Amino acid sequence: AVSDRLIGRKSVVMEAISPQNSGLVKVDGETWRATSGTVLDVGEEVSVKAIEGVKLVVEKLE
């Protein structure tokens, strides 16, 4: 599936994300709604860990 190619990809937070609120990330020039178990600020680099419905699950790059 097209979405499977996103797992493991680097992306950049475009709208802040917290455990309570989804935000936005940009992956390969496309904007996606995303969630995370931690707070992520605009501009942080993250990695796509999973896809749940139409949202990406991301975490901060170490």
Rank of each mutant, 00 (worst) to 15 (best):
L6E: 02
E52S: 10
M14N: 04
K55I: 15
E59G: 09
E62G: 12
S18K: 06
K60W: 05
T31I: 15
G43T: 02
V57A: 05
K26M: 15
T31G: 06
E62Y: 11
R9N: 05
L24A: 10
V27K: 02
G53S: 04
V39P: 11
G37Q: 13
K10P: 08
S47N: 10
A34T: 05
K55A: 13
V58M: 00
S36F: 00
V39N: 13
P19I: 05
W32C: 10
K26R: 12
G29N: 10
V39D: 11
S22V: 13
T38E: 14
G43P: 02
A1D: 11
L56D: 04
L40F: 09
D4V: 11
G43L: 04
S3I: 13
E52Y: 08
E59A: 10
A16Y: 08
E30V: 09
I51M: 08
K10F: 07
L6A: 03
K55R: 14
I7F: 02
A16S: 09
E62W: 09
P19S: 06
A34H: 02
R33S: 14
I7V: 10
L6H: 04
W32Y: 15
R5P: 07
K26L: 15
A50P: 01
N21T: 11
I51G: 03
I17T: 04
E15L: 08
T35N: 06
R5A: 10
V42Y: 05
V58Q: 02
S36P: 00
V48K: 01
A34F: 00
G43C: 07
K26H: 09
D28R: 03
G43F: 05
E30S: 06
E62L: 12
A34Q: 05
E15I: 08
E45Y: 11
V58T: 02
V2Q: 12
Q20R: 11
E59T: 08
D28L: 09
L6C: 05
E62C: 12
V54M: 14
V58F: 00
L56Y: 00
G53V: 03
R9S: 07
G8A: 02
T31M: 14
S22L: 10
Q20S: 12
S3L: 14
Q20C: 14
K26W: 14
A34S: 05
I51S: 04
V54F: 13
G29Y: 04
G43S: 04
E45A: 09
E59N: 04
G29S: 07
V25M: 01
L56P: 03
N21K: 15
V57G: 02
V58P: 03
A1P: 12
M14G: 02
G8K: 03
S3V: 12
S22R: 04
G43Q: 03
S47M: 15
G23M: 00
V42T: 05
V48E: 01
V54H: 14
G43Y: 04
I7C: 08
L61T: 09
V57C: 06
V57F: 08
T31Y: 15
V25T: 03
G43R: 01
G8M: 00
L40W: 05
V54Y: 11
G8L: 00
R5L: 09
D28K: 01
K10M: 13
R33D: 14
R9Q: 09
L6T: 02
Q20D: 11
V54K: 13
V46P: 02
L24P: 01
E30N: 07
S22H: 10
D28Q: 05
R9Y: 04
S3W: 08
S22Q: 09
E45F: 13
K10T: 12
M14R: 04
S11I: 08
K60Y: 06
P19G: 06
A16Q: 11
V39R: 10
V2F: 11
K26G: 07
A16H: 08
R5M: 09
I17F: 02
S36T: 03
A50E: 06
G8N: 06
A16D: 04
R33L: 15
V42E: 06
S22D: 15
A16V: 09
V39M: 11
V42D: 01
V2G: 12
Q20W: 11
G23E: 03
L56F: 00
K55Y: 15
E15W: 00
A1K: 12
E59Y: 01
G23N: 01
I7R: 05
G23W: 03
S11L: 10
E52L: 11
E15G: 05
V42P: 07
E30K: 09
S11A: 15
L61R: 07
G53L: 03
K55M: 15
T31C: 15
